[in-house]
Computed example of a mutant assay.
Amino acid sequence: MADRLPALFAMDPVHLPRLFPEPLMRRLRAVLDIDPALVAERYEGFAPLADAEVVVSGWGAPRLDAAALERAPRLHTVLHAAGSVKPLVADAGWERLAVSSAADANALPVAEYTLAAILLAGKGVFALREAFRADRSFALGYIHPEVGNFGRTVGIVGASRIGRRVLELLRPFDFRILLADPYVEDAGVLGAELVDLDLLVAEADIVSLHAPDLAETAGLLGAERFAAMKDGAVVINTARGRLVDTDALIAELATGRISAVLDVTHPEPLPADSPLFSLPNVFLTPHVAGSQGNELARMGLYIVEEAERLAAGRPLAHLVDGDLRWRQA
């Protein structure tokens, strides 16, 4: 076992047992010389950093800034058991480090949540639930003419990693799919029609956000685009809260003309007196679309498999392109 790569964990320790349950931890320790009892929550004064060649990081990991990189002369690889790596490594680190991420593993539960929200929204379930709860009765056999998923138009904003998974999951259904993304040239291969964002919001029955959180995407959906949406349109946000002008969304929702499914908001958490908690046409969840519970082990599995590839001298399968990291969520 002397040839195992020296490594350390860096994350909030509370996540370690869910990311690496015992079978996965055994596999990881078979290829990395890593101690689950030593978890870096900060690098300053953390002596094992000096000898580490690999950092296995996760949510709550300290940033590998210039000072930390200087104290880690042997470090060459970061295996991140989570999604976005933008806050994880300072710019200088991208010149010397290979960074792998379990973002693909974290994308799946977000895409699954989104698919469920699209199907339920198309069926009118959120509004019908509110009506049923208020009336405590319904007309047996009544056909609701305004609902259904046959031929409904779904607009996907952003062919990100998650956006693409959503597009894959939508393929078996009878939807018309629109895609708005300035970096996509051929949406046909993704099963979608490429349109600009203004056309998408005007034509889609359901608008689902999957764009990254960048300066240019802040307030991507604002008052004008909400006003352009069809009566009865549904906005789904599982991306980042800043993509939406919250005040403009609240104002449009208050008219009752559109509805929303929101797993993320801006600010987050919302103030306790936010109208989003009480509006009947809002389905609000507390940022749970990403990996939760046993889903963390999927991210851990991705990292164990990457560590096995690294130890065997094989290319990493989930290497992050440092030049494109700014486009990640």
Rank of each mutant, 00 (worst) to 15 (best):
S259L: 02
L120C: 13
H287N: 07
D65A: 03
R314V: 01
G58E: 05
V78I: 11
H15P: 00
T265C: 15
L214S: 05
V195Q: 11
L140K: 12
F226A: 00
V110F: 07
P87Q: 13
L119P: 00
R71N: 05
A72C: 10
R309V: 02
A68E: 11
R26C: 02
M25D: 03
G256F: 14
R63Q: 12
T265W: 09
A102H: 07
L214Y: 04
I156M: 13
A254Y: 04
S84P: 00
S208T: 15
D174V: 03
L284Y: 01
S137A: 14
M299E: 05
Q292D: 00
E112T: 11
G124L: 07
A248E: 10
G45L: 07
L194S: 09
E185D: 15
L75N: 10
V147P: 11
I118N: 02
S100E: 06
A311D: 01
L75I: 05
M25S: 04
P275L: 09
K230Y: 13
D33Y: 06
Y43E: 03
K86Y: 08
M11W: 07
P271L: 00
A180Y: 10
M1F: 08
E22M: 03
V157H: 12
E146Q: 11
N149Q: 12
L8G: 03
G222C: 00
G124K: 08
T246E: 13
E22W: 00
T217W: 03
N106K: 08
R242G: 00
N106G: 09
L38K: 14
D174L: 12
A40L: 04
V282N: 05
H287V: 02
T114G: 05
P13C: 13
L197H: 06
D33P: 06
D3T: 14
L169K: 12
A40N: 11
R325I: 03
R96Y: 12
S278W: 02
V56K: 04
P21L: 05
A192E: 03
I118F: 01
V184C: 15
V54R: 09
K123P: 07
S278V: 08
D323H: 10
S274A: 06
T255A: 12
G232T: 08
P73D: 08
I250E: 14
H318V: 01
H210F: 10
G222D: 14
A66C: 00
E305D: 04
A233Y: 04
P21I: 04
L209W: 07
I34T: 08
L5K: 05
V264K: 01
L108I: 15
G290W: 02
E95M: 06
D33W: 00
L214P: 05
V99N: 10
L220S: 07
P48C: 08
G219Q: 05
V304E: 08
G300A: 02
A117V: 07
V55G: 04
V288P: 02
L32S: 07
A7N: 04
V147K: 12
L64E: 09
Y302C: 00
D91G: 12
G322Y: 08
I258H: 05
M25E: 06
A329P: 01
L170K: 07
V56S: 10
E185T: 15
A7P: 00
L128D: 01
E193P: 09
G191V: 04
T114W: 03
V110M: 12
A102D: 13
H144S: 14
A68Q: 05
V157F: 13
T246P: 07
P269A: 03
V78A: 10
L214D: 09
L128Q: 14
A289R: 04
A92S: 15
N281I: 01
G290R: 01
E252Q: 11
